[in-house]
């Protein structure tokens, strides 16, 4: 691979870990590396990236880039692409990355693959791998033409830890204001259901089939274990439980001593929220469910038969 452009991201004033993961991935593929830092008064972060392996760092620094907006970001990326003619553009698959990357691809008439977790050199070609069908399958892709654009799943690669002397150069950007206006960032109303300190969490998914079953089937196990109840996104989306029960990338990030996943297939957005748990028990009737990949212990059974049985045994174990 001849030349890679990575798009850095700054969060709370610092380079995101995901950006150093892009550096590591680009370096694994070999060839020249150029980075793009976008923001307002972020020359310090650009210097840091240059020292941490980012190679030549282009700096798009403007008050209009103080908050993410797709117009400003796309303009900066497209200008970097036209200045550097990269063969590969890597962008983190974050809320900003997935918002801007497809726009850039359409503007450049370039091929793009999102949420990639691995890229490999295959002769002169690159093979991109990502999940499909919410993690049930993987897919291997190729892109023709140049540049090839990929958004990369955060956490898929270890961050680059070396140090190298790079340089920082300013990048001229369009002065036109973005069409969308940033108003604020706020936290969603926090509910009273804090799972962050729970020792045991028993979460239910779509496999519970209907809202009444959370009380009828799941709650007895929750109570027997002295646990807290959690849920997967589809359960919350369907309105079966409030948002504050949701475990996952858009809900709560938890790491209890024991996490019990009941009727949860294991979409990536759920796994991100609970994979750091000390011990994971998965109960699902589908032996191919992705949840079994990250669970420590798996029970392939109909939850409606198994969960009441388990609740009863836990209860009697506690009694005796």
């Amino acid at each position: 691979m001849a030349r890679t452009l990575i798009v850095a991201e700054i969060q709370n004033g610092a380079l995101r870990e995901a950006t150093l993961e892009l550096v590591a991935l680009a370096r694994k593929l070999g060839g020249e590396l150029v980075s793009l830092v976008i923001g307002s008064e972020v020359s310090g972060q650009a210097e840091t990236l240059a020292k941490q392996g980012g190679g030549k760092v282009l700096l798009a620094d403007s008050p209009k880039l103080a908050n993410y907006n797709s117009d400003g970001w796309a303009d900066a990326i497209q200008r970097a692409v036209s200045a550097e003619a990269p063969d590969l553009v890597l962008i983190s698959n974050t809320p900003s990355g997935w918002d801007v990357a497809p726009k850039v691809a359409a503007a450049l008439d370039a091929g793009i693959i999102t949420d990639v977790f691995d890229i490999e050199n295959e002769g002169d070609e690159l093979a991109f791998t990502r999940r499909l069908f919410n993690g049930k399958f993987n897919g291997r892709f190729r892109i023709t033409g140049s540049p090839r654009i990929a958004t990369i799943q955060p956490g898929a690669t270890a961050a680059y830890e070396g140090s190298d002397g790079g340089s920082v150069e300013p990048l001229e950007i369009d002065s036109a204001p973005p069409r969308s206006e940033f108003l604020e960032i706020r936290m969603a109303e926090a509910g009273g259901h804090d799972l962050s300190k729970a020792e045991i969490i028993v979460s239910g998914g779509r496999g519970l089939a209907k809202p009444e079953n959370f009380d009828a089937v799941l709650k007895p196990l929750v109570d027997a274990l002295g646990a807290q109840m959690g849920a997967s996104r589809p359960v919350v989306d369907a309105g079966w439980l409030p948002h504050e029960y949701q475990v996952g990338s858009s809900g709560q990030l938890v790491q209890p001593k024991l996490y019990v996943a009941v009727g949860i297939s294991g979409a990536i957005q759920h796994l991100v929220g609970m994979k750091s748990s000390n011990y994971i028990l998965a109960i699902n009737k589908d032996p191919d469910a992705p949840i079994f990949e990250i669970a420590d212990l798996g029970v392939v059974q109909d939850l409606f038969e198994f969960v009441p049985k388990l609740a009863a045994k836990v209860k009697s174990a506690k009694g005796g």
């Binding site: 370039a110 091929g111 093979a127 892709f141 023709t144 212990l297």
Partner: peptide, 21 residues
């Protein structure tokens, strides 16, 4: 005409995975 091709779809490689009881 596509620039992106899905060459192969496959089951995710089994890691250590869960111990199935």
């Amino acid at each position: 005409a596509p620039k992106v091709t899905l060459e192969k779809i496959f089951l995710p490689p089994r890691g250590k995975g869960a111990e199935i009881v």
